[in-house]
Amino acid sequence: MTEGNFVDYVKIYVASGKGGKGSSHLHREKFIEKGGPDGGDGGRGGHVILRGNKNLWTLFHLKFLRHVKAGHGGDGGSSRSTGADGEDKFIEVPLGTVIKDKETGEILFEITEHDETKILAKGGKGGLGNWHFRSATNQTPRYAQPGITGEEVDVILELKVLADVGLVGFPNAGKSTLLSVLTSAKPKIADYPFTTLKPNLGIVAYRDFQSFVVADIPGIIEGAAEGKGLGHYFLRHIERNSTLLFLVPADADDIKKEYEILLDELRRYNTEMLDKDRLIVISKCDMLDDELQKEMQQQLDKDFKGIEYMFISSIAQQGLTELKDKLWKMLNA
């Protein structure tokens, strides 16, 4: 999937169908000149319905869709025949899609399960035919109800990636490289900031045919919570992850400070982020000799009291099995 094909934010105008008119028909046939009312009801207007699809990973198929309109209900007929219901319109969305009202920003609902359906705009009710209005004092009513108009709403669809583990780190921390060696994912990797412009998902194969999903989130910079860099483009994807893996390279000027900046950006975006399980991973440890790594461990023991950390090297394939074991244990605690 190319960068341009990953779409996680679209705006759509949706309109449900109008209900059909009730009929004011009076029964007529041979030898019956003045039959009673027999007008049928109008059909229901079509709904606009969202449906979850586990085979979709992006909102790209909706990128150029601006308007969605359901069909109108058919009018009632004679002999109390009801009009046809309007055609429902289904919009397929990936799991993890959040639907918001464009005007108010209010979250209407979320789609998190395959084949889960939610009515986005309800079709108008069909009008009642004159048969319903007959009475002892008015045996031939010549009026019927019009159909009720459908609903119109402007909505925003936002995708929040569903993954077990989210990789959090500054640009060039080695997140894409780690994802590529842990999983069969093939993210774009290069030695410059913001190589990753979209979340990459990879499935980690674990023991006994078990697995979990890791998401490589585009790199955070200081001020991201205010929209700097890629801003909210990627921060919302971290909200879905149950475990956060903070990746800090061993050659960072100040590992503790880098971790605290990352943590502060998450806190400023959403304080609930701090409730998630965290693991600090020092990457590129192949650059360290044994003596230097021991010195660094002594310092990290002081800096990260009560917070677990570990050393790995994606290039040298060091510590990866231990990392998988640790993540699996945290996910299933």
Rank of each mutant, 00 (worst) to 15 (best):
T183N: 11
T58R: 08
G83V: 11
G71Q: 04
V14Y: 10
T271A: 09
I282H: 00
G42W: 10
Y309C: 08
V281L: 03
C285I: 03
G35L: 09
G77L: 03
T183G: 08
Q297K: 13
Y206W: 13
R44Y: 09
E239K: 15
G39S: 04
I312Q: 03
F194D: 09
G20V: 12
V14A: 15
F31D: 14
G150W: 00
L120A: 09
E258R: 07
L56F: 05
R80P: 00
R80V: 12
G74I: 07
K18T: 13
I307A: 06
L266A: 01
I12Y: 00
L247S: 00
F234I: 13
Y9R: 14
V48D: 11
E258H: 08
R80A: 09
D289C: 10
S242D: 14
Q145A: 13
S24K: 14
M1A: 15
G39F: 00
L292T: 10
R80K: 15
D275A: 08
L279I: 03
L288Y: 02
S283F: 02
L323I: 03
G20N: 10
E308K: 04
K63S: 12
T177D: 01
F133P: 06
Y309F: 15
F60K: 13
V168R: 10
F60Q: 10
K188C: 02
L300V: 06
D301I: 05
A333M: 10
V281W: 02
V248L: 01
M296Q: 02
A84R: 12
G19F: 06
F212M: 02
S24G: 06
A205C: 04
L179D: 05
T137L: 11
V98I: 14
L327M: 13
G227T: 07
F304I: 08
V153Q: 15
V161Y: 05
Y143R: 08
D277Y: 08
I238M: 14
G219K: 06
L245Q: 08
G223S: 08
N332A: 03
L288V: 03
D38G: 09
S180F: 01
E272T: 12
R28P: 00
G74M: 08
G150M: 03
S176P: 01
D191T: 08
E239T: 13
T97I: 04
K228G: 05
L292G: 00
S313H: 01
R80M: 10
G231K: 00
T104E: 12
T271R: 12
